[in-house]
Design a protein around this nucleic acid. Structure first.
Lengths: 149, 149
DNA sequence: TATTGTTATACTCTATAACTATA
DNA sequence: TATAGTTATAGAGTATAACAATA
């Protein structure tokens, strides 16, 4: 059986151009729909269900609670999210996605998907499969724990 | 044959935590050897051969010529690179790696490799192979052209 | 006049701490 | 006093333009 002890460049160095390419693919699509990267991230999180506080929402997308405030302001002003004080604890803000927000998120994701598929089509089919499976496998790992071990 | 038209998250979103993990793996190793991320990148580029100008070196590692100047200062002061005016064109600086620089680069890369292998070991063997092969395949693509098409 | 390297400046992101309002 | 949200500030990283030396 072949093992992976051969020569290769650092994974970060290999991944970096790919990552930059993916960001470059997303940027114009997001701009066209007038949503920021963080805004899209928030919409994606809220599409799975409402959030009870801004802090938990921030944490779920790997952001700081102070960093998403402008994002929430924008999304609210655009009518993409609801953001209302929790009657049970008026310190907290209940966050949920609106029909408009859901529509934008779906449109953005669909366009990103098309562009990504065009990129993946450059790969041999078997490598493409392996790549996607490995990404799924990684995403089910708890990378935070691993890196600080 | 199974095609990859199933549901999945955006590739950038899938890649981001992995990329962050890889950076987190590299950071303490680089710190221990007192080299910055850009410094390591420069050493890696020069390990393949000298550079005729700073601008071409910068471009080869995806940086701006103005951005690597402090890095080159540090590497030179640490004795990791040689940086001397080209006798044939005294505007340009000939850049090459020293024995010390090569030693540091090898040590850093070896340690990074060990840590990365530990991470990859969390994946099923077949996914690991597919992942590495896909990365190699991507790196031989001209991603810059693709993203701006 | 063009090119190489350098410096200066501004702009974006991010991290931290301090503040307010509720509890 | 503790917590949720907000604001202010500073720092790192980056991009751009202007500058000095050489061609």
């Amino acid at each position: 059986m072949a093992e992976d002890t051969g020569d290769r460049r650092d994974l970060a160095a290999l991944l970096h151009p790919l990552f930059k390419t993916l960001i470059a693919i997303e940027r114009p699509i997001l701009a066209e729909h007038e949503v920021s990267m963080w805004g899209y991230s928030v919409l994606t999180a809220l599409a799975d269900g409402p959030a009870r506080t801004q802090a938990t929402l921030a944490e779920s997308i790997g952001a700081d609670k102070t960093r998403i405030i402008d994002t929430l302001d924008e999304l609210q002003q655009a009518g993409h999210i609801l953001r209302e004080p929790d009657p049970a604890d008026r310190r907290a803000r209940l966050l949920s996605i609106t029909a408009s927000g859901a529509r934008v998120r779906r449109a953005v994701q669909a366009e990103i998907r098309v562009a990504e598929d065009r990129l993946l089509a450059e790969l041999p089919a078997e490598d493409r499969q392996g790549f996607l499976r490995a990404l799924e496998a990684f995403s089910s790992l708890s990378l935070d724990e691993i890196s600080t071990r």
